[in-house]
């Protein structure tokens, strides 16, 4: 009787083990896991008054305004390995009755130009500010250049200026970063 029970017990016990298994799975697929987040992030903005293009004390035009900012997050191997594409969107709203030449020069730590973006801004006026939008798409081949830079120099050039010039040149900009992160 006891032996019978023992046999039953062992049979059920074994059955459970033989029945149990991982079926229809492939854990090697873990090697193919790829995160592809697309991140929207504001970049720079400014509001340049028309008066900034004229020096009243010397009565001279200022035909080029320049400013520089570090973009520390851009530089470095880490971002280079995962950044596959970047779209820069620049949106200018111009109420100054002048055209502008605006450039963005991405420099490395040795101040060498690694990537250069340039655009012409259409003239506007204070009652009808004109919006100029341009998109700079940086593909995988060019990303290495971009990520070797760690600062950007922005130049805003005006053809001519005067004491009576009024209006504002506004920039809003953002970047879409396309990342690919594997294991």
């Amino acid at each position: 009787m006891l032996v019978k029970k023992a046999k039953l017990f062992i049979s059920l016990f074994s059955l459970m083990f033989f029945l149990s298994c991982f079926e229809g799975t492939d854990f090697e697929q873990a090697n193919d896991v790829l995160l592809t987040p697309e991140i929207e992030l504001d970049l720079i903005y400014f509001n340049i008054e028309a008066s900034q293009f004229y020096n009243p004390s010397t009565s001279t035009e200022i035909l080029v305004l320049k400013d520089t900012t570090d973009l520390d997050f851009l530089g470095g191997r880490d971002i280079n390995n995962i950044l596959k594409k970047a779209d820069f969107l620049f949106q200018f709203t111009n109420s100054i009755p002048r055209e502008f030449d605006v450039s963005f020069d991405f420099l490395n730590t040795q101040n060498q130009s690694k990537y250069f973006i340039q655009s012409n801004i259409v003239s506007g006026n204070q009652t009808n500010p004109v919006v100029t939008t341009f998109l700079e798409e940086i593909d995988e081949q060019e990303i290495t250049d971009l990520t070797s830079a760690n600062k950007v120099v922005i130049s805003v050039a005006i053809a001519s200026s005067s004491q009576n010039l009024t209006g504002v040149l506004n920039l809003q900009s953002k970047t879409t970063y396309y990342l690919e992160i594997d294991q």
Partner: peptide, 23 residues
């Protein structure tokens, strides 16, 4: 609230240092 880096295009003396916007 983060809305990016605001540049102000300061008048700089020749050789003057730029504003450390990022820092």
């Amino acid at each position: 609230t983060l809305d990016g880096l605001q540049l102000i295009f300061p008048e700089l003396a020749l050789g003057g240092s730029t504003i450390p916007y990022y820092d």
